[in-house]
């Protein structure tokens, strides 16, 4: 099992062989509530770290999902179109958003590991 890295905006990325799978954290899905729609990026789009990559919508909120690292989108989780609730039920598994090829792997150094992220959300209360 490869490692998870987190942003302060509650995205996670899991890196395997230069490919990063991106989603939102359990904390984020709880804050947003029941997901109703996920607006996913197009395959082939290039993002710089911090660019808006997707939008996660619940009934009363729409939240931008930022690219945690720079890269090119290689795959999207099309199952979310029909069952956005997977983001609520399995945020680190079936609720993934998209997969990207990392163009600047050193971006990872600016992210938090699981322990640091846990401390961060505890601070948020």
């Amino acid at each position: 099992m490869s490692e998870l890295w987190f942003t302060k905006d509650h995205e996670w990325v899991r890196v395997d062989n230069g490919e990063g799978t991106v989603g939102v954290s359990d904390y984020a899905q709880k804050q947003l509530g029941d997901m109703v729609f996920i607006d996913l990026p197009a395959i082939g789009v290039t993002f710089a770290q911090g660019d808006t990559a997707a939008v996660a919508e619940s009934v009363k909120a729409a939240s931008e999902v930022y690219a945690p690292v720079s890269g090119v989108v290689e795959a999207i989780n099309a199952d979310l179109n029909n069952t956005p609730s997977m983001v609520n039920e399995d945020p680190y598994g079936q609720g993934w958003f998209f997969r990207m090829h990392l163009t600047s792997p050193s971006d990872l150094t600016s992210l938090m590991d699981e322990t640091a992220y846990e401390a961060y959300i505890n601070e948020l209360g």
Binding site: F37, V59, K60
Partner: peptide
Amino acid sequence: LATREQHIRREK
């Protein structure tokens, strides 16, 4: 589908 609207998205 209120998330399209100004009271939630504001400038977006």
